[in-house]
Design a protein around this nucleic acid. Sequence first.
DNA 1: GTTAGTTTGCGTCAGATTAACGCAAACGAA
DNA 2: TTCGTTTGCGTTAATCTGACGCAAACTAAC
Lengths: 228, 228
Amino acid sequence: MKPFHAYKNPALAVDLAVFGYSDNELSVLLLNRRDEPFAGGWTLPGAFLQMEETFSDTCSRILQTKLGMDKLYLEQLYTFDDPGRDPRGRAISVAYYALVNPATLQVSAGTMAHDVKWMNHKKMPPLAFDHREIYKMALQRLRSKMLYFPVGFELLDDEFTMTELHELYECVLDMSLDRRNFRRKILASEYILPTGAKREGLQNRHPELYSFNKKLKPSNFQLNINLS
Amino acid sequence: MKPFHAYKNPALAVDLAVFGYSDNELSVLLLNRRDEPFAGGWTLPGAFLQMEETFSDTCSRILQTKLGMDKLYLEQLYTFDDPGRDPRGRAISVAYYALVNPATLQVSAGTMAHDVKWMNHKKMPPLAFDHREIYKMALQRLRSKMLYFPVGFELLDDEFTMTELHELYECVLDMSLDRRNFRRKILASEYILPTGAKREGLQNRHPELYSFNKKLKPSNFQLNINLS
DNA sequence: GTTAGTTTGCGTCAGATTAACGCAAACGAA
DNA sequence: TTCGTTTGCGTTAATCTGACGCAAACTAAC
């Protein structure tokens, strides 16, 4: 029997929706294409899977190349198979999304490739291929996931104030949440703990600092917020 | 430039976790393998993607071949990429799950291929490849999805009694749910409506018949049942 | 038909949860 | 020191939940 790869198989791409959060803005990492098709257009960063790679390897390779760092929070999203999605031929795309916190975002400013750019998620340009669809699904997944899984913390630094966490949720979900009720629910979940520390730059320790409680299993984090 | 398929690409398989429900039992469609590797072992039904096919096409082809019918409820689950998952070489598996209602299940009894069998989900044999993992993820997805999305109805006939729906949920979730509270919540969601009909075989119309309300958008179906 | 046991539909109620909002101490800028 | 803002904590009414009672509708046995 011939080896699998001797048969005609579609190309396998891995595409990434990388979200970054800083200064109350949610951004997405976009790549400005140099080559045809869609030369000059915007896409999500991606790469073709090499024979020996896992998806996770490919993600790391993309992130290293474009951001100069990997080891971010990473989650598989969906696999897109529209036969017409790439004009060059049949290509399947396995989409992942990644989350970048402000510190990493700042560091990456120095190591980022010249052909990528952080774009505010409210000012997204048209995207090539079916990348708009991928991006939309990623945002939707992030939004619904942060309601029942402590995933939002991945977008913040290790230590954060309640206000910062609150603003993150309001920003990503694009809705206003009562500050006091949000605090009560988040604290009741016990997924964040006060650190007792005082942040550099602050004169006092009034805005308390919290950190994500990594010892708890994330199974029953539940914010009970109704979208729609 | 060479066409994509001229490069070395992994094989792309589509594997299906097909759930059937009847007589208060949840079953999974298993295939008894004839060829190596794992000859004689059990697997989920699957097939390699043909160049012109969409995943959905491949699913239909598998279901036609093995069940003699397609057009079931179908949802993409996850794409598995462990390089060692197939001893024959690199193969990616895109997993879907499908739901079959009792009527279809009954019809399929006559059209089913001889090498497949419905297996009670509590009596699953060891599965070849990484199919145990796929099956477990499918069951988990079904369980969590039916709590916030009206997907359970796909496992029942068009018309059903409240008791049947209640038993379905208890069976699939493998937990007991208070009959009266379940009724209250389900009816409050307005996703099922009384049909006013009387079922054949029943002498009276006391156990009321209901049907899924397809006019409602399934976005805010919420049963608020706590797993774990 | 009558009777006895089961199923089904509906209601009650105490306790928990939620949304909306008040308030004062802590803070920072003038 | 003063004043407007931020932050932490509390209150309350309305709603939701889980646990369970009850009788009408039904079935099966006699």
